[in-house]
């Protein structure tokens, strides 16, 4: 190596912060968004055209504009809102009880092996069992009102939450427990600073699965036997060949599911700031 040296490159002009494009501009440039939008709008137009030309039976399948019109009528009807709130109550009560009981039980069963051994067969059994199959007996036990629905929502969500939580506690990386032990962390601190936080991703998975089960519970429960609720609207509209009203009911359930998933995402973001972006599911 002699004195010959290349001059240092000019300081890079990369800015510290990348300038942000306006959102709508970025969206329009995004192939994914544009093609997605074309797909959705294209399908709706096709559906509408088939309905107007009489190729499909609007008594069953309605059309996008008919569903919109039915929706506009329903939201002005207090009866719709009372059904909506019944369904919401059933969903929230069952799901919340499942969370409040399921997470602590899952943490405890993951932490105390003996408790886990004792519960494991039943957890697996109930997880395999399609809980909506218990509806007939739940309706007889709890009646046609909201309680049988709350019960089926609870059963649906509870096991979906407990099982991943147990899994999460049992797979906490040994080295983190070693660190806490090495600093003489109390058992309580070991639990709150290591086990609980390491398990958060698993709990979130449980919440997502539980949410789906809870929604299925509400729909099935109300379709099977109920006097009030969105499911009843769907059932009655179908029986009277009001495809537009029925599909509006289905749409409301779908939207609720989407909102629910977004809420779980928000919880996830709140508790998982520490995970690199690519690992967030």
């Amino acid at each position: 190596m002699s004195g010959a040296s290349t001059p240092a490159p000019a300081p890079s002009s990369l800015p510290d912060r990348l300038p942000r494009e306006p959102r709508w501009k970025a969206l329009l440039k995004s192939e994914r968004f544009v093609l997605g939008a074309i797909g959705v709008v294209g399908f709706l137009i096709l559906w509408e055209a088939l309905a107007r030309s009489g190729s499909i039976n609007v008594q069953f399948f309605a059309s996008p504009t008919m569903i919109a019109a039915a929706g506009a009528r329903e939201v002005q009807d207090p009866g719709f809102w009372s059904d909506f709130f019944i369904s919401l109550t059933e969903f929230l009560s069952g799901f919340l009880v499942a969370i409040v009981l399921g997470i602590p039980l899952g943490l405890a069963a993951g932490w105390f092996p003996k408790l886990n051994y004792a519960l494991d067969p039943w957890l697996n059994f109930f997880n395999a069992l399609p809980r909506v199959a218990l509806l007939p007996i739940l309706v007889i036990a709890f009646g046609l009102g909201i309680w049988s629905k709350i019960a089926v929502v609870f059963l649906g969500a509870f096991f979906a939450i407990v099982i991943p939580t147990v899994q999460g506690v049992r797979t906490v990386d040994r080295k983190y427990l070693d660190v806490a032990t090495s600093f003489r962390a109390s058992r309580r601190l070991l639990f709150t600073s290591v086990v609980g936080l390491a398990t958060v991703p698993f709990i979130v998975t449980g919440l997502r699965l539980g949410m789906a089960r809870a929604l299925i519970g509400v729909v099935t429960g109300e379709l099977y036997a109920a006097t009030e609720g969105l499911g009843v609207i769907i059932r009655r509209s179908a029986e009277t060949r009001q495809g537009d009203r029925m599909l509006f009911g289905v749409l409301i359930f779908t939207l609720s599911g989407i909102i629910g998933v977004e809420l779980v995402r928000a919880v996830e973001r709140r508790f998982q700031k520490w995970r690199p972006e690519g690992f967030r599911r």
Binding site: K175, Y176, V179, S193, V194, V200, W274
Partner: peptide, 9 residues
């Protein structure tokens, strides 16, 4: 500890 054992959370 030998490998990074910082708590990721």
């Amino acid at each position: 500890f030998q490998d990074s054992s910082l708590f990721p959370w």
